[in-house]
Structures are given as C-alpha cells and as structure tokens.
Design a protein around this nucleic acid. Sequence first.
DNA 1: CTGAAAGCGCTTACAG
DNA 2: CTGAAAGCGCTTACAG
Lengths: 368, 368
Amino acid sequence: MAKKKRKSKKTFLDACRRWKSDNSNNRKPTINDVAALAGVSKKTISRVINASPLVNPSTREDIQLIIDEIGYRPDPQARGLALQRSYLIGMIYDNPNPQYVVNVQQGILDGLRGTGFELVVHPCDRKSETFLEDARSFVELQKLYGVVVTPSVSEDERLAEVLREVDCQYVRIASVALDRDERMIVTNDRAGGRDAGKHLAELGHKRVAMVTGRRSFRSARERREGFEEGLGEFDIELAPGYVAQGNYTFESGLAAGAELIDLNPPPTAIFAANDEMAAGVVQSALIAGINIPDELSVVGFDNFQTATRIWPRLTTVESPSRQIGLLAARQLLQFGHDTSDKGLHNHTTPKLIWRKSSGAPSEGSNNT
Amino acid sequence: MAKKKRKSKKTFLDACRRWKSDNSNNRKPTINDVAALAGVSKKTISRVINASPLVNPSTREDIQLIIDEIGYRPDPQARGLALQRSYLIGMIYDNPNPQYVVNVQQGILDGLRGTGFELVVHPCDRKSETFLEDARSFVELQKLYGVVVTPSVSEDERLAEVLREVDCQYVRIASVALDRDERMIVTNDRAGGRDAGKHLAELGHKRVAMVTGRRSFRSARERREGFEEGLGEFDIELAPGYVAQGNYTFESGLAAGAELIDLNPPPTAIFAANDEMAAGVVQSALIAGINIPDELSVVGFDNFQTATRIWPRLTTVESPSRQIGLLAARQLLQFGHDTSDKGLHNHTTPKLIWRKSSGAPSEGSNNT
DNA sequence: CTGAAAGCGCTTACAG
DNA sequence: CTGAAAGCGCTTACAG
C-alpha cells in the first residue's frame, strides 16, 4: 500500500534539485537519471517520450515534471541507433538558383522548427556517373527519416525508385503530380504560364514570343503549354518562329532576347520561363535601344530578388517556394500518422505580379 | 603454426562472395560481419576503420579487402553514440542574403565531399530571446563535430563563448580576426573597401559619397574605413554629409541613393557597402534621370547575381564566399590533427571587378 | 600487434 | 499499466 501511495510533486522536485546539485560536472541527464528519479523503469520513460498511450496519466505527469525540471532531452543518436533511423531530414536538389534553394530550405526549416528534426542539405549532379549511388549512400548511411527532393532532380524516376528501395520517406516537389499524393507537392506551373498568357492577351498583345527552358525540364514544358493555353483563350497563337530556346540562365535569356528582337516583325511581348532569362531579355532590349514596356513587354516567372532589382521592375509569376518547402516538411513528418483527416494540402498555385515591364502595346507597333 | 599461416586473398574473396549470396534480405554489413569474415575481433576492424597504426600491415590489407568487397561502411550513428559526437557539421548563419548563404554552403560542402561528414544548416535570429539557448541545444543535442559561423552572428562573442562551453569546435568567418587563428577565416573587407576607394580616386573623382551598412556590423565598419583609406591615399576625403546610413537592403539603398543624389553639389561617385544597396542606388539614379556612369559612378560590394543583372552592370568588390566556405570546412576537419605544418591558410582577399557602372567623372560635373 | 568485456543511451518484443 | 533482458553498431580502457 505504501507502494501505491503517489509521491507528492514536491518530493520529485526536491529529488531533482538534489540531482542537479550532485551533478557537479554538468553531465547531461539520460533516460536512466529520469528513471531513477521517478522510481520507474526506463521503459516507462521511453513510453512517455514516445507519447505512448499505455502510461498511467499520473505516472506520466510525474515523469514529465522531472523531465522538465532537469532538462532531459532524449539523445537523437541513441534513439536513432535503436530505431535504425535518424532524426534528420535531407534536402536533395540540383537547382542552380540560390534564391530558390534558400527559399525552399527556409520553408522546410519552418516546418521542422520545434520538432527536433534537423535539415541536412545535399546538392547533387544528375549528370554524374555516381549520382544514384551517391544519393543512396547518403540516405542509407545517415538513415534519413525522410528527404524532400526539388526540381529538376525531383522529376527523376530512378531517384524515386532508389528512395523506395532503401525505404526512405520522400516528398517530391514538381510542377505536376508524378507520384502518389502523399509523396508530392504540386506547384502547378501550368496555371502560372496561363496567367502570363492571359495577362499579355488582355493587355492587347497579338504578336507574342517566348523564351522557354529545356524541354527535359517538366516545369519548362508546363510553363510553355500553360502560356499557350492562356493565349489560346483569346485566340492568340504562339507562332513557332517566336519561340526561343533557353536554359534558365541569364546568359541564355540575353541571347534569346537578342534573337527575338531581331525578328521581323518583332514581338510586342516576350514571356520568359524564369526571371533570370527575363532579366536577360530586358538587358538585350536595353542594349538594342528598345524601350520597355512601351515597345516591348516582358514577363518572367519566379519573382526572385532579380525581378525588382532590374529596371523597369519585372512583371512576373510568383510560385510560393518557401510555402512549398513548408508543406513538404509537414507532409514528411506526417508520414505514418493519420493522413486520413481533412486530406492533404499538397498543391500550390502561382500568382501573377504586375509590375512595370508589361503594358499595352504601343500604337506604332503594328500589332497584328 | 597453422594459425600463423596467412590466408590467401582468394580465400577471403570467396568468403565474401558466400556472405553476399547468403545475405538474402540485403542487410547492410556491420563490423561484426567484417570481423567474422576476417577471423579477427571487431576491435581490430575498429582499428582499421580509425586508421590506427597498431595493426599488422598484412592484417590491415586483408581487412580492407573484405571491407571493399562487401561494401562495409561504419554506421555514423553507432560511432557517434560510442564517441559521444556526431559526424555532422553545422552552419550557423543569420545573413539574409540568399546568394551569400548558398555560396558559403557550397564551399563547405566542397570541403566535406568524400569525408563522410554532412552539413546541417541552422539559421538563427540574434534578436530572439532564446537565440543562445537555441544554438546551445542545437549543438549539444546533435553533438556536432563542429560548426561554421558566418557574419554577422560570427561577431557575437556570446555565441563563441557558448560553443566553447559545450566544447564544440568552431570556425568563425569575419572581416577581421576576432578569435584564435584556427578558429577564424578572415575575409579582409577593409582591403576591398580600400580598392573601391582607390578605384574611384584613380578615375578622377573628388566628390564621392558612400552608403554604409549598420555600424553594429563589423563588415560595414571595415568596408567604410577601408574606403576612406583608399581615398586618403589620393588625399580625398569622404565628407560626413556625403555618408548615408543603410542596412544592407535594396530598399535602404534606394532611399540612400535618392538622398545623396539630392545633395548640392551632388557626388560624382557613390560606393555602396554591398550590391543590394548599390542596386538601390542605381535604381534611384534611373528614377531621377541621372545617367550612370556619365553623371554618376556606382560601386558595390559582393559581386552577387544582381551585379550583372542590373544595367549598367555593376563595378563591385568580390569576396570569394564559396572559397571562404571551403577553407572553413577544411579548417574544421583539421582540428586535432597536425595543424603545425605549413601554417593555416585562413585569410582571403577581395578583389575589385570593374564593369560599366563606374568611369571618369564628366567634364560638366564641376568635380572639385 | 590483438582480444574479451563493458558501455554509449536509447527501444523492442515478451511477459506479467 | 509496468519491467527485466537483450540488442542497435560501434569504441574505450585494460590486459596480454
């Protein structure tokens, strides 16, 4: 019966204080310390840590008190060793744009804050011979809890296959659904392209051109097809001769811009599939002495820093990259938990930001 | 004597093959597997892994053969648990510029490649109440092998103190030496400022202005003082009224530029302490209808993407941020090893890149 | 130069 | 609802 009598809160607090003053060398408390202080087995402590329901509420309360008091925090390495997985989330990316990388990173970190998970960054090169092995060994060796994969490497089915093989949870960020719902964040770039097309059509442009990204990038195809759809709603066509091939770099935008400007008749508006290329187009117009937006409207995609640094400030389509990272992280942490409730929120929608690089075509532009 | 006879290479290879075909469920090999295959204790395997000299060379050779053959890689979590530290490097930063963050990150990753170490990113907010506790708990809980700290949080002595308390190796990146040599990468921003000053003086500018960063940032003070030194070499003074206070953001550069342009007489050249502010200055000049570089020269600092996206392309001082990250990572991994040889290479020097935003002052500028 | 034992701080069946 | 024992894959004194 003495055994059944619950010790008072004060008793525990006193014990904790004694423990702290004994702990001269400031050793971090372990599960054993908590168990000793609480007078239970460490298995029970483990249950509290892991939020198991199989614990007497009052026992749980006592233990929680002790945990808080002595500042116990389970060692992630020890848990990891026992569970055969770490408390690390990986981010696998090959996108060269620093702003994109940082935005998604920030979003993931937003989602990880307070969870005890940490983010390990892992750039990769899809062209490398050892790309798949590298990724596999990274994930396997670190026993990652999960990874988020960004475009364009997210479009690589071989990588997804590897991740499944090593039994690693993953979330792929891509412009369209390429995998099961819980493994995707879909950014719907097509809708953004459509908005760009409609924007230019509504302004009255008829002779429009586009700088595309590599066809091997899904986002590039989506943005282009969306753009054509948007124009199509106004019965405007993107003539084949008015499409220049870029590769998402500033330099390619510069070259593509020069090329399109030289067309006869020249386009009155150019949509570039990302801001970097749009900045190149704008610069090529400046070099050619063409006024933006009077003689030429330019629209980009991303709304990164560059969009507001150039002049005139760029009309562009913004994709919420930080939010996307946040959703990806949340989704990763939800794996195994009840995903049934209220369904996944795994879609985002881009939105057009109208600045000064686009306007109605001028009278003299012979806009037919 | 049979015991002394060394088994042949082939014997080991055969054993490995047998092991692999037995390993139906594709379990990753552990130290025990290697020990069994080699016919030695796991302690000896441990010695090989850890490159201990106390191993018979031929034993080592046999073991290495087996390790390579079955693809054994020591589990970092298990090692970590035993050694009480992880194989993770942290990057603690509060710099809001994505390009800087990514560059340093890349550099660190360059230095980590092939070492088995991984990079955990950890942004922080020095204004937060819990900033120091957060950092401590991050480092302690993950038992980080080491951290690299970037400006401006690298200038915080309290953080350095915490890192020492928890006995975590660290390298601070800063514009001047704030700590022991092996704990610093010094970027010498003052030399960069000096180059900017000399550049403008050599072009013939006499009435120069500057947009500074926050005085609480060491880099801002260094860049400014360096700039004044550079001008001083040509007996040119930076008049107090010609210094505008910024905070390293584009917006602050925009405001500062407008302010300086309005001065009477206006400056013929402006040095902004970073590219973001320089881009703001350039944009404010455009808005005011002032031609760059004919009526106004502008020089920035960083040479980030923005520098070449704006028009005219920006003359700026480049600090090799990726290289800086690389040096920091190398230095971290060298801790405990012989640092005696050939001394540390822990200094970098910025260099001026002359583009189109700076030139000689025009005749009509009344440049006295 | 090599090994047997104990330990790092957790968790997982299993039994009660 | 709770616990004793074994184990995750390594390393560290210690002994030889």
